[in-house]
Amino acid sequence: MPSTPPSPSDPDPRRSRFAEKLLPGGTEPDPRFTLANERTFLAWIRTSLALLAGGIAVEAFTTDVFPEPVRRGLAVLLLLLGMLLSAGSAIRWLRVESSLRSNRPLPLPLIGPLLAAGCAVAAAVVIAVVVLA
């Protein structure tokens, strides 16, 4: 992929006041980068939705599999992780967009380690329950 954005253009008059406030300064990056950032945000959101669906499913469908405290704990853990990841993906989208506007290097995804650690804890809980049962 080429990494050189086209020459900076005039600020887009269609930018909302909300966007002006959150993303001040800089110039609009290559529209394709803005769209790629949006798709990356959506991929993170779908990941967090999968965790939310998992949390709801654990509580709704595993009544006969897990003892109640484990079931509730696991469901709340997955739902909390999904919430954190949803909020984190919006923050990441904002940070990437801001870096694109000012031509800075992209920030590291802090939600990556969060997702990995959360999933590892959830998996460890399930393994512990299966082994101890």
């Binding site: 269609r14 966007a19 529209p31 993906s89 919006a90």
Partner: peptide
């Protein structure tokens, strides 16, 4: 140039 869709992103999150 394309204005970022801030509203849609924050509503969805």
């Amino acid at each position: 140039h394309l204005a970022p869709d801030t509203t849609a992103v924050f509503w969805t999150a």
